[in-house]
């Protein structure tokens, strides 16, 4: 089951503070990078939920994000729906698509699961790429951001939009932890560790997998809506499998199955991409080598490594310092 250790709390607090500081002090380019990180964070949270806690390594999460983005854009610009209503419908649609994919793929395991999700993701990609309704490979433009001027907030300002994304990310993170703490989340982890035993206990394992996949689709859909609003333009490239592949790389770099780790990974990945991108156009080479090194080191990503090294010691020291009578008190606040 998912627990917040002191180290996780500390890293979350540092990340939140850093994001706030960046949001208030950075210039235009810094804000763009921050928003990119925040949206990627949502996508990798969605992926970590299924891959890290359910063993369902999905290569369609990029496509799910794209479905959310395209559904929002189509409903808001083509059908002329109110942006909030369009966003709601887009997220619901993404969740439904994710649930169906999860339900169909739940029977396959390992490489077959990866390939099946890849097939569905690429199916969506090819459909959008060819579809004249959604602009084909030209993409769609003219997407508006949410209108919050009624309460004095102008989201067309980058700084405000960054803060808005940060708030949404916070809510998404709480949503993910709530899923993992619920009975459903605990059953999911049980299914990951031993599906046969969970079946023997009388659980409907495919339903559990499909439900969590659907919930993960909600998060991916939210990420998609925000991604569409951020650039105000979408292209089929958003749905391509390489987006899902990169998200998987981020999850692994950060630490699979830790929720906090993928956030660290997202920051590291985007910063590395932009910093290296200034120095050399061959930043993929560096990312590739770092990825190989991380996987071969057998550590669970950057955060997993830190957790294995300092987590236990920090736990003990804090437990001694606060003399907490029960471990629940240390771990139970969100």
């Amino acid at each position: 089951m998912f627990r917040h250790t002191p180290l996780r709390h500390a890293v979350l607090a540092i990340l939140a503070l850093a994001a706030l500081m960046q949001a208030f002090t950075a210039g235009y380019f810094g804000l763009e990078i921050l928003i990119e990180i925040l949206i990627l964070c949502m996508l990798v949270l969605a992926l970590d939920l299924v891959a890290g806690f359910g063993g369902m390594v999905s290569l369609c999460h990029g496509a799910l994000m794209g479905v959310g983005a395209y559904a929002f854009a189509a409903l808001a610009t083509l059908a002329g729906l109110d942006p909030w209503l369009a966003a709601l419908a887009a997220v619901a649609l993404t969740a439904a698509v994710a649930w169906v994919i999860g339900a169909i793929c739940a029977r396959s395991h390992g490489i077959y699961f990866i390939m099946a999700t890849l097939a569905f993701g690429q199916m969506a990609y090819s459909y959008v790429f060819e579809s004249p309704l959604f602009g084909g490979d030209d993409g769609m433009g003219g997407i508006d951001r949410f209108d919050l001027t009624a309460i004095g907030i102008d989201l067309n300002d980058s700084r405000t939009f960054a803060l808005f994304c940060l708030a949404v990310l916070g809510a998404v993170y709480l949503f993910a932890t709530a899923i993992l703490r619920s009975g459903l989340g605990r059953s999911l982890t049980g299914v990951m560790h031993n599906e046969k035993r969970m079946k023997a206990l009388g659980l409907n394992t495919w339903r559990i997998k499909a439900d969590v996949f659907g919930l993960s689709g909600i998060i991916a859909g939210i990420a998609g809506v925000l991604a569409a609003q951020h650039i105000m333009f979408i292209s089929p490239g958003l749905l391509n499998w390489t987006v899902s592949g990169e998200a998987l790389v981020v999850v692994i770099l950060g630490g699979l199955g830790t929720l906090v780790g993928p956030l660290v990974g997202a920051v590291a990945f985007v910063v590395m991409k932009h910093q290296l991108g200034e120095v050399t156009t061959y930043w993929h080479l560096v990312v590739g080598i770092v990825l190989i090194a991380v996987v071969m080191s057998r550590a669970n990503g950057i955060f997993g490594w830190a957790e294995a090294r300092w987590g236990a010691r920090l736990d003990r020291r804090l437990a001694d310092a606060t003399r907490s009578p029960t471990p629940e008190e240390v771990t139970s606040d969100a």
Binding site: V57, I111, I114, G245, L248, V249, I252, Y282, W283, H284, L285, V287, G288, I289, V290, L291, I292, V295, M296
Partner: peptide, 15 residues
């Protein structure tokens, strides 16, 4: 782990 290492190799060989 194997999928990921070879995924890293794709990046490296591409560049």
């Amino acid at each position: 782990a194997q999928v990921l290492v070879t995924f890293g190799l794709i990046f490296a060989l591409l560049d």
